[in-house]
């Protein structure tokens, strides 16, 4: 276990200076934010650096924060270092009007389908993706269903006793 969170943080700060912000360690997983223009540079650095070697992309997803003006969509990357068994998470934020983020398909083949899924549900436009089309929903769909403006259940329903569902 040679790789510690402090060391990763130090390597990243040496390379990118104060462009990376909000370093946190919730439950031991190093988490930080990067400007969205830099996402590919950060991924490249994490992948290629001789000490970091984060070469296994386990998870890629988006989160929608409608109240976060100008930074509504967060794209969250979970990366894993198989040598030191270490994991990090980093986020980039994009505005919902023009959610352009560079694709990571050049580095991780796994990103191909994960980015298609993220596009499918949140409409994040991965610039440079070889085949950016819907994966789980039908192609004719013209909206992005996991965004927060689509409520799942009518909250004004009165025929359902919420107390019985543990929401009282």
């Amino acid at each position: 276990m040679g790789l510690t969170n402090e060391h990763i943080k130090q390597r990243l700060t040496e390379k990118f200076g104060d462009q990376l912000i909000n370093f946190e360690e919730p439950y031991g997983m190093l988490t930080f934010e990067a400007p969205r223009e830099l996402n590919l540079k950060v991924l490249n650095f994490l992948y290629d650096d001789e000490e970091l070697k984060f070469r296994f992309m386990t998870d890629l997803c988006a989160v929608h924060y409608p109240d976060n003006k100008g930074k509504e969509l967060a794209v969250v990357y979970h990366l894993h270092n198989l040598v030191d068994n270490c994991r990090i998470r980093f986020k980039v934020f994009a505005p919902v009007e023009q959610p352009d983020v560079y694709t990571a398909t050049g580095l991780f083949s796994a990103a191909n389908w994960m980015e298609r899924e993220t596009y499918d549900f949140y409409g994040v436009n991965f610039v440079g993706h070889p085949n950016l089309k819907r994966i789980l929903n039908v192609e004719e769909m013209d909206y992005f269903p996991l965004r927060k403006e689509f409520p799942l259940e009518d909250q004004s329903r009165v025929d359902k006793d919420d107390e019985m569902f543990g929401r009282g």
């Binding site: 994966i135 929903n137 269903p145 996991l146 689509f150 799942l152 259940e153 543990g166």
Partner: peptide
């Protein structure tokens, strides 16, 4: 081609409590 039995469990989970 996937998604024939997609039920959007992720969206569904957003309206369910941590027990449900």
């Amino acid at each position: 081609h996937l998604g024939y039995i997609h039920r959007s469990i992720e969206k569904m989970s957003e309206s369910l409590t941590y027990r449900q």
